[in-house]
Amino acid sequence: MSGQAPDAAAIERMAREAMSLIPEPFQSHLADVVLIVEEFADDETLDALGIEDPLDLTGLYHGRPIGEKSSFESGALPDRIHLYRVPILYEWATGGEMLERLVWHIVVHEVGHHFGLSDDDIHALEDMVE
């Protein structure tokens, strides 16, 4: 990478690779999830979450967990996973974990929210993939 920080496209490639490793029955429910890589979360998102430092948010799931969806809903925005490049790179630089592994961990965590999983269930999903 010639000494430059990975750009949004590189983070997105890592995230798509991570999503492809998630096993069934989860995998078949991810086709319609939109993946978005941005530099930082916007002020409205940070305020809604009560987060003061934008470096504290590396990823966020927007949508309704699968178990809460209704076939009567229409016109809703697609489910989205937002990854925030600068906070991810900051965590990578200060944490010592490989960047691909960090992105994978964030993606699995946000996918877990898509399925309405608890943190314990998300850790079990991570263990399944490892």
Rank of each mutant, 00 (worst) to 15 (best):
H109Y: 08
V129E: 04
L49T: 05
F115W: 06
R101F: 04
V107F: 03
G63C: 09
E130K: 15
L83D: 07
P54V: 08
G75F: 04
D79V: 01
A5K: 03
H113I: 10
S71K: 13
A15K: 01
L77S: 01
S70V: 01
V103F: 04
Y84H: 12
E24K: 09
A48H: 14
E110Q: 11
V129G: 04
G59H: 07
G3H: 14
W92H: 15
L89C: 05
D7A: 08
I22G: 09
F72Q: 13
Y61T: 12
E126N: 06
G50M: 09
E52R: 15
S71D: 08
L102I: 11
A9F: 10
V86W: 09
Y84L: 04
L57N: 02
A10T: 10
A31S: 14
P25A: 01
E39R: 10
V37L: 00
H62P: 00
T45N: 05
W92L: 12
M128I: 03
L30M: 08
A8Q: 13
D56Y: 03
L102A: 09
A10W: 08
V108T: 05
A31C: 13
V34A: 01
L125Y: 02
Q4L: 15
G67V: 11
I66K: 11
S2Q: 13
G3S: 13
A31W: 13
T58E: 11
R16W: 12
L60S: 05
A31H: 09
P6R: 06
Y90K: 08
T94C: 08
R64G: 02
I122M: 06
G116L: 09
Q4P: 03
L35Q: 07
M1H: 09
P78Y: 01
V111G: 14
D127V: 06
V86P: 01
D119F: 04
S74V: 12
Q27I: 02
E97F: 02
V86F: 07
A18P: 08
L35W: 06
T45D: 06
F40K: 14
F40I: 03
R64I: 07
A93Q: 14
I66Y: 12
D42E: 07
F115S: 09
I22V: 15
I106E: 07
L102F: 11
D56C: 14
R64W: 01
S20L: 07
E97Q: 09
I11V: 03
L30H: 01
E91S: 11
I36L: 00
L49N: 00
L35D: 00
E12T: 05
F115N: 07
E91I: 11
L55Y: 13
D119L: 09
H109L: 07
S28N: 06
E52L: 14
V37E: 01
T58D: 11
V34D: 03
G59D: 00
G67E: 06
R85V: 11
D43N: 10
F72N: 04
I88G: 07
L21I: 00
D7F: 06
D79N: 06
H123F: 05
A41M: 04
E110N: 15
E91D: 15
